[in-house]
């Protein structure tokens, strides 16, 4: 019975489940799972409602004012997309990302599907990778939804013409639309750090609502910290720092500085919180 006293080591578990072989089918399955949920479509519909409400409000009242870009909507419908994404970035987008990323493993645990995936054996690292990929895909879909619906409703309700950029030059409509889509990509990248944080929090619990709420609260906290000038020393390291830096894509020539800095910062967050999530999830007892 001497071996009964030896504490069992976790050695090897990580390495044996770490090989992401044949991940394509699982990735497709994960994407299908995301987009077959009514909840996902409800979130996207709520996001699509933002530009619609903005455009209708401007149309009915006939006056501009309010957040940036809203004043320009009546003169040029293309600005509906810019205005809508500006409204969505601080709260609505993080809210939907929090739901999707916070649900990752905690949602599977609460359904009881996590143990069956692991027995399959899906591989713990492999599962985290596809969960993050699905969250990233959702970030892109969410940002594109706001922007594309904004452009379409703008085309429908307002005159559309060449856009005067922040730097003063005018670009043709097609050029402006390309920049709008680029802004959606910028915003999607901005949300990757938050997705990784949500994924990590999700590995800590079997209660998805808790993980979702915690993720959203963190995104708000980070924005509040970013608004306090006393804390300017930590500002460059907040994942929300560059969230509104997409204006640089509306200059001529395009300034890629904030895009690059943002991408690098988000990558850092993904690496740190992705590693934390793996460290936690690989050794965790699945008792759900």
């Amino acid at each position: 019975m001497s071996n009964a006293e030896v504490p069992a080591a976790d050695h090897g578990r990580a390495s044996s489940t770490a090989r992401p072989r044949g991940i394509g089918a699982l990735l497709l399955s994960e994407f299908a799972l995301l987009f077959r949920r009514r909840r996902t479509w409800a979130l996207l519909s709520a996001l699509a409602a933002i530009p619609v409400l903005l455009a209708v409000a401007v149309r009915l009242s006939g006056e501009g004012g309010g957040p940036s870009f809203v004043g320009e909507i009546a003169g040029n419908g293309l600005f509906t997309g810019f205005a809508a994404i500006t409204v969505a970035v601080p709260l609505f987008l993080p809210l939907t990302i929090g739901v999707v990323a916070g649900d990752s493993t905690a949602g599977e645990a609460s359904l009881g599907t996590l143990r069956y995936l692991l027995i399959t054996p899906v591989g713990r690292i492999r599962l985290l990778l596809v969960k993050f990929a699905a969250a990233a895909l959702f970030c892109l879909t969410a940002a594109l939804t706001v922007m594309v619906v904004g452009i379409l409703i703008g085309l429908a309700l307002f005159p559309v013409g060449p856009v005067t950029l922040l730097s003063g030059t005018q670009v043709p409509v097609i050029d402006a639309i390309a920049r709008a889509l680029l802004i959606a990509v910028y915003v999607a990248v901005s949300l990757l750090g938050l997705s990784a944080i949500g994924l990590f929090i999700s590995t800590l619990t079997d209660v998805p609502v808790g993980a979702m709420a915690a993720t959203v609260v963190l995104s708000i906290t980070s924005q509040i910290l970013g608004s306090l000038s006393q804390l300017s020393a930590i500002h460059p390291y907040l994942f929300t720092t560059h969230w509104f830096g997409f204006g640089d894509l509306l200059r001529d020539p395009i300034s890629w500085t904030s895009f690059g800095e943002n991408a690098l910062l988000q990558f850092g967050y993904v690496v740190v919180f992705g590693s934390l999530a793996m460290g936690r999830f690989v050794t965790r007892d699945i008792l759900s």
Binding site: S16, L118, L287
Partner: peptide
Amino acid sequence: LALAAPTAGTISVLGSEMPSRSA
């Protein structure tokens, strides 16, 4: 099934040690 790690002791399933050979 390698869902939970033992506090102590050894496991062999189908001739291989668990959880190290779970894959």
